[in-house]
């Protein structure tokens, strides 16, 4: 293997412009974090809502929830991204369509965040549903028996426990969202994967380019893991053993 190592490459100037590769990487990290966090917010909000709907005592709400989950779960993320980026704008009202295609600022960012958020919301919904359904049936009964309405029962009794139960699977979804944000390169968002490919092309330093992006992804995912573990510890219920009834 003859490979010319160059650990200074990060400080080298890019071919066009006066930036260094390091500046590229830092800004790419920013986009990766921004997309992941926005998508995570969307995924948590919609996922909790849809997951709850799927346990509702109403056939239509359950059906909507099922269609949502199956739809987003059975099409590859990259294909969904292309649908949002290329196809959806075509179906918008004429004015809006023109604006999205020509003038919309940070179009790649918003498309990626929405796409990734909805994709992950289906997976979060599935976890939330399972969490709610894993609670003993008597909990809902006891709450109703005390005079709580069904929405109150969800708000005060079912969801607080269900969320505690699903924190571990949600942790891996949070880490997944960071890893999955890499597909955004395909629509030209200048996040870590995009920049590492760009850097390979311009500098020829394959190893250093990939290493920087890989390490940063790993650090992000690890931080997400720490945050969720902290939340899990803070919300732990004394004397309650998950899975025991």
């Amino acid at each position: 293997m003859n490979y010319h190592w160059n650990w200074h490459v990060y400080l080298d100037q890019v071919s066009a412009g006066d930036e260094r590769y390091l500046d590229w990487i830092i800004s790419a990290l920013g986009w990766t974090i921004a997309v992941s966090m926005s998508a995570w917010l969307i995924a948590l909000t919609l996922g909790a809502l849809i997951g709850t709907l799927r346990t509702a005592p109403n056939r239509w709400l359950v059906a909507i929830g099922n269609v949502w989950v199956e739809g987003f779960r059975n099409v590859p993320l990259l294909v969904q991204l292309f649908l949002w980026f290329f196809v959806v704008p075509e179906f918008l009202p004429a004015e809006l369509s023109r604006w999205v295609k020509q003038d919309m600022p940070a179009k790649e960012f918003f498309t990626a965040a929405i796409c990734l958020g909805l994709f992950t919301s289906a997976r979060v919904a599935e976890q939330v549903r399972a969490g709610i359904q894993s609670l003993p049936r008597g909990q809902k009964m006891a709450s109703l028996a005390m005079g709580f309405t069904l929405p109150q029962t969800y708000r005060y009794v079912l969801l607080p426990m269900a969320f505690r139960i699903v924190i571990p699977p949600l942790t891996s979804e949070f880490m997944n969202i960071i890893k999955n944000s890499s597909v955004a390169f395909a629509i030209g968002l200048m996040e870590l994967t995009f920049i590492s490919r760009q850097m390979i092309e311009e500098s020829g330093q394959v190893f250093e380019s990939l290493l920087a992006a890989t390490l940063l992804y790993t650090i992000c995912a690890f931080s997400a893991n720490r945050v969720m573990t902290y939340i899990e510890k803070r919300t732990r219920v004394p004397g309650y053993i998950a899975g025991a009834k």
Binding site: K179, S182, S196, L210, A213, T214, Y217
Partner: peptide, 21 residues
Amino acid sequence: RSIPLLMVILWFFFLIPLFTG
């Protein structure tokens, strides 16, 4: 499991030729 699949794809694609020549 901690690396995005896309990065793994790129690693293999660029690095295997470095080893095999």
